[in-house]
Structure formats: structure tokens, C-alpha cells
Nucleic acid binder design. Sequence first.
DNA 1: AATTAGCACTCTAGGCGTGCGAGTGCTACC
DNA 2: GGTAGCACTCGCACGCCTAGAGTGCTAATT
Lengths: 337, 337
Amino acid sequence: MLDDRRMAVLRAIVEDYVSTGEPVGSRGLVDRHRLSVSPATIRNDMAVLEEAGLITQPHTSAGRVPTDAGYRLFVDQLATVKPLSLAERRAIQTLLDGPLDLDQIVGRAVRALAQLTHQVAVIQYPSLRMTRVRHVELIELAPARCLLVMITDAGRVEQRFIELPIPLGPEATALLRSRLNAATAGPTLEEAFDDLDDLWIGFAEPVRPAVQAVVKTLKEIPKAGRQERLVAAGTSNLARAASDFRSFMPVLEAIEEQVVLLKLLTEMSADSGQVAIRIGHETTQAGLEETSLVAAGYGPGRAVAHLGVLGPTRMDYPGSIAVVRAIALYLSRILAA
Amino acid sequence: MLDDRRMAVLRAIVEDYVSTGEPVGSRGLVDRHRLSVSPATIRNDMAVLEEAGLITQPHTSAGRVPTDAGYRLFVDQLATVKPLSLAERRAIQTLLDGPLDLDQIVGRAVRALAQLTHQVAVIQYPSLRMTRVRHVELIELAPARCLLVMITDAGRVEQRFIELPIPLGPEATALLRSRLNAATAGPTLEEAFDDLDDLWIGFAEPVRPAVQAVVKTLKEIPKAGRQERLVAAGTSNLARAASDFRSFMPVLEAIEEQVVLLKLLTEMSADSGQVAIRIGHETTQAGLEETSLVAAGYGPGRAVAHLGVLGPTRMDYPGSIAVVRAIALYLSRILAA
DNA sequence: AATTAGCACTCTAGGCGTGCGAGTGCTACC
DNA sequence: GGTAGCACTCGCACGCCTAGAGTGCTAATT
């Protein structure tokens, strides 16, 4: 039913429509793509494709436009990988240079992603739940006041000041520090938390409330919400892409709301560097019916967070996929260092 | 020349145009504002106002629209303070609740600002240069590796890991810690830096390179750029306000660029809680000719940073001023705590 | 059976003219 | 100085029309 030529026609329609933005007709199709058949034949093929729900015409006697299903088939079976240009590789390479501050890395990456795809880029901050603890530091600042510092393998540093119910003393502080490190080394932060509940047993009766206070603070860090945050860049690219401006107000809203996008991102792909795509209505979000999301997980080893680009369904999928994958891999590599 | 009634006419024109978005004519003006004169008289007044460059007509035989100069006169002399509603006060009050994390405070404040003004809100993070140091902590993690933590009076915490050229030892570490605190207590961070250059004198010859390394790291913190950052919210409000969408693409760009907006914000007002306004071309930025900025400084005591709202020149200035001032004051109060 | 040529048909975009209405500016008058 | 009246200007919405692009269908061709 859907033989080779018809697939070629679909691919050609997608490519032309993506690059021009105009509905594409049978004549222009044969002209631009060296199809060795006549427009009439193409018309028949298009009728079949339309019957199959892959393309549609905005109005009678206009050219055809891919439907969401058409894009889906295109990305799943028809799209060829588009290798990055040298300039693109260069741009990403420069991400590796310079300081290691997590904020700066993420900031640069999201900017690069937006610039290379000409879309809106979003990057989720590495989730604390999924990261492993590299080091925990406990410092006594004053008799009943201490500072808790936690460094994760995603390069993140979190610190909290703790007012203790009773002074802990230098020896108990040192002991608690080593115990905390022992308990959190290895598994992910979330898994490690169960072990923390019994930590107080190893301490003398009087200081146990202080130990509890420290453990309580530590356990609250992942809940603080800051890690479930995403940064965006390239929002001004929206204006170029969208013709009418009601179509991208929802996108801006989604970015500000964060929660919708975060949910969407996290449920998309599990593995680091694996690209997943939601096209149009597949986002299942009101207002994003004409928006696609190309996303990938990133992180040292497995994915601890996600990143992606957000654009009109009519977007350059092969190009976006290549860039998203590349940025995800580079980001993973940097965080692993 | 510009007697009372003419000023009243200007005020009425600004108010009507702001609320309706339509050019306002002489007839509607007398109807809505109980002016006890005839439309013809108003027309004469409008001719004078137009002569003075305060209003203009988009095309012959349309109503009048305020010019930038008209808005300027309005905000400087005609606008009456609009007290906040109870609901608005409530909304701001809730900012005070909850945890003290700087990120969260700023995040909530910018959201509130956007929501209450229905504009795009921006808040500059408290600048490190202008803040005072509340506490400096230096912790020896390993023989030649230590952690430097700095807490500012704006509630900000910065930390850096330092690889030392040679081990410092516990006594020298303690001494350096107290010296650092002594040197930075009192003046602003920038002022304190001069004193740091001589700090190594008080230390034994062998550890001096390590002291230098710590001082160098400390001095680099304000340059790290992170503090010169601003967060935005309410960008989706742009779509409602602007009629054509080319007019707000520059706004999105300005927010992403940051540097332009930061410059604009910092050169606007010096005192905490003092509201300053740039109208249209007064922003002296290409692309922001139809955009106004209502901004205020905030901070404990004097202003350490700025915040504001960004909207079309046709905006509710009295309302925006009230909200901006309120948020600035609340934010200052929270940071002072 | 697939492909092609030809043709009638449909629909949109854009140009053009027109009447309407809002609003002005001017002049004469109070 | 303020007002009434009036002619004038201009943008806007509407209706009309045409050109052009593109289709679907049928019949002929390979």
C-alpha cells in the first residue's frame, strides 16, 4: 500500500514544507525532487497519503501539509541522520572550555542549544534524587550552629545552615561527618536516605537530637524544589517561527509554569543520550497542539535530567535531533569529569 | 499656556488610551470624564497639546494618542498614587512566609510582580559588589584542599573549592579564617578587597603561597558573573499587550541578553525603594522604542540591586509604580532580616 | 495495472471601488 | 474664552472581481 515512492513523496513533502512553510503542491514536488513521474501520479499518491491520515490540505485547492502522524512516520522511518557541521561541532566544543561551575555550564549549554537549532531550548537542572553524593561536609561554625555542604557527582553544591538544639562538639561533629559520608557514598541520594534514619544509634544519648537535626536537614535538601527547575533560552526564536502569536503564548506559559514541561521531559526518555520526540498533540497539553518537543536525557552514565528543544511541529527534526543528542552527550561528559 | 483644564485633558487622554487602547476623540472624552465644556473646546485644547508635542494622532481624523513626552508629563505631574488593593497586599505578604532561600525569595517576588502588574517582571540578583560580608568560613577538607564559604547580608551564599599549592595546617587555617573575617567585616565587598592584598604579611613564610591562593579565589568571586544576573517572569503577558508581534521580540531578546537590561536598570535609580521610569525612546535601546521600564532599587538600607517591570509605553503607570515600590520595599525588608 | 494528459472545478489572495463613520479644524457667534 | 455648526479628511470594512495555484476525475497510453 505504502510503497517506496509514496514514502519518498511523504519525505519530500515534509522537507519542502519545513523549509518553505508553504503547503506543497504536486508540480513543485516533481520539479524540486527529480521524481521521474508526472504530477498526476504524485497527486494519486498524495490522495493515498491523505487517506492514510499522513497529510492534509489546509483548504481545498491548496497544497498538502504533513499531519502529526505524517511527521511521526517521517522521524521514525524516513529521516536520515544529519551530521553536525564543523561550525556546530566547534560551537559545542567551546562549552568544554572554561570554569566548571554548574550554573555556567547549564547556561552555556542552553544558549548553544537554542542558537544551533533556532528553537526554544530547555534544560532541566540535574535532579538531586537521581544523583550520587560525592562528598558531604559538616562544619561547626559556632557551638550550636553548623554548616552542611553536599557535593553531588553532577557537580552541584548544596549548603544549609543548621541551628542545633544542643552543641555537638568537635569529636561528635567529626564522627557524624564520616558517618554521613559512609552512608551516602555509592547509591543515589534517594536510595541512601533509608540508611540515614538509623544513624543516630551510633551516638551518645545527649547529642542525638543534634544528629537528628542534621539528618533531617540533609533529607530535606532534595525536596527543596530548586533542583526541579529548568532554564530556557531562545524564546525570541518563537517570534520568527510562529505566524500568529496566539500559538506561542502557551509555550511561554509552559516555560514559566515549568511543572508541565518537567513532567513531559521526565516521562520521555530514560537513557542518557537517547533522543525522544513528541509531536504536536502527542504532548497532550492544551496549547501545545502545534508544538513539538525533541528531548534527550543526560548525565554521567544514566540520565539524571533532561534537555530538549521546543518548536513548531513544522521544524527541522533531523537537525534538531542531531544537536540535542550532541549537547546531551557533551553535557554528560562534562558532568562525569 | 498649559492651564489646569488642558492638563486634565491630557490626563484623561492617557487614562482612556491606557484602558481602551484606542485613540481617544473629543466627544468620548467629555462623556466619560464629566468635563463641563463642549467637545469643540476640548478640540482646541488638544490642538494646543499636540502643538506642545504631548499627544499625536496616528492619522488624520483619528483620535489622539499620548506621545512619550505626554506619558512623561503624566507620570511626573499628573499621576496620583494608586493605593494597593487588599488582595494585592495579601499577595505580597505571602512572600514573607516560608523559607529564606534567596533563590526562592527572588523567584516568588518576580512572579508576584508579573502577576500583579500583568507585565513582564525582571529582578536583578543582589550584586555582590555592593553587599557587605556577613561571614566568611574557611574549612580544611584535605591537607591541600579547602572550602571557602562566603555569606553576604543579602542572604547569598557563595562557596569555592581551593586546591592549595602547599598544605596550610589547622592553626594557619584558623588564623586565616579570622583574618579574613576581620578584613571583610564592615565595608562593602568591593571596598574590603584592598585590605586583602596585605593579608599574607601576618603569616609565616612557607604558607604564604597558600594564603595568596585563598585570597585570590575570594577576590574572584564577585567577578564570576553569576551575580550580574536577572530573572524574568510573565513573558507570556507580552502576547496580550502587544498588538503586532514584532514589537515584543526585542523585549524577549533584551531579557535573554541580560546585559542591556542590567545596564539600564543599574543606571536608573540609586536609592532603595525609589521608583524611576524610562518611557519609550528614553530607554535608548533599539527595539525598545515602544517599551517602558518602571524600576526601583532594593536592598537592606541602600540599593544593592534593581527590579522592575517592562511593558508597552501604553501601560498603567500609577498601578505599576505602586506594585514595583511595594515589592522593592518588601524585598528589602526580607533581606535585611 | 500503472501512468499520463487534459480539463473542469474550487478556493484563496489580492486589487479596487465605495459608503460609512469617527473625528477634526475652521468660522461665525455668544 | 467658550460654543455650535459644518465641511472635510481619512481609515476601515465590505463587496466584488480576477488571477493563479492546485486539485480530482476521466479517458487515453504504455
